[in-house]
Amino acid sequence: MPISAPEPAKRETLLVARGIVAGYGKLSVLEGVDIEVRAGEAVALLGPNGAGKSTLLSALSGIIAKSAGSVHFAGADVTRATPQQAVRAGLVHVLEGHHVFGPLSVHDNLLLAAFNAPPGERAARIEEAYEAFPEMAERRHLRASALSGGQQQMLVVAQGIVRRPRLLMLDEPSAGLSPVLVDRVLAVAAAMRARGVSILLVEQLVEKALGLADRVYVLARGRMALVSESAAGLAPAAIERAYLGGEALAGVQP
C-alpha cells in the first residue's frame, strides 16, 4: 500500500470520507456525509431507521456508487475502488442481515471470504476465524442454511475476520441475536480492536454500541446530526433528540 506522507494532524486517520452523496436510483439517501475513522479506534454510527447508515457503509465499501464525495483509505484514494479493491486494501464490510451462502458449507463460506488472500494463506486465516468462533469449527461441514440465525451472524463476522481487515465495518451485528450472542460478537470486535483493527459499528442497541466505541456519529435523514468525540460523555438526551427530531445538534468535525 503506497502511503503518501500525511499531514501531521491527520497522521492517524485511516478512513476519511467527505461529502458523500449516494442513494438508489432517483432517491438519494445520503446528502453530503463526512466521516473519519482513525487507526485502532472503534467508532459507533447510530441513527434512526432509514437514516442511511447501511447506505453509507455500502458507499464506503464500493458496493453502491457515489454520485459525489471522496473516500480516502490509508492514504490512498478509494473513491472509485471496486469492492474487491476495497477488500484488498483492508476496508472490509460485513453486511447486515446474515447474508450467508445457504447451499454452501460453513467452511466454503469462509473460503470464499478468503478469495483475495494468497492461496497459501487461506487456511491460516480461516483457522483464525475458527479460533474466534469455535462453534463454526465444529460445524464446518454443515450447510450454512442449516445454521441458526445467531450462528449465521457469527459466520458473517467470521467472514469479516478472514478478510483480515484494517477497518472492519459491522452493520447491525446484533440483529436477531440473543443478548448472550450479542456480547460474544461484540467481544470479538473488541478483541480485534485490541489487535489494532479499527471498527466502524452500526448498531441499533445504542448502549452496547456506546460500550464499545471511542467516538460516536449519529446520522439522521441522510446527514450527520451529531458527532461526539467521546462516547462516554454523551448525554442520552442528545442522542434521543437527534433520533426523534432529526435536527442537527452539536456536530462540528474536529
Binding site: P48, L205, V206, E207, K208, P236, I239, E240, L244
Partner: peptide, 8 residues
Amino acid sequence: VVHAYLGA
C-alpha cells in the same frame, strides 16, 4: 417506546 427506538 423510546427504548425500542434506542434499543437500550
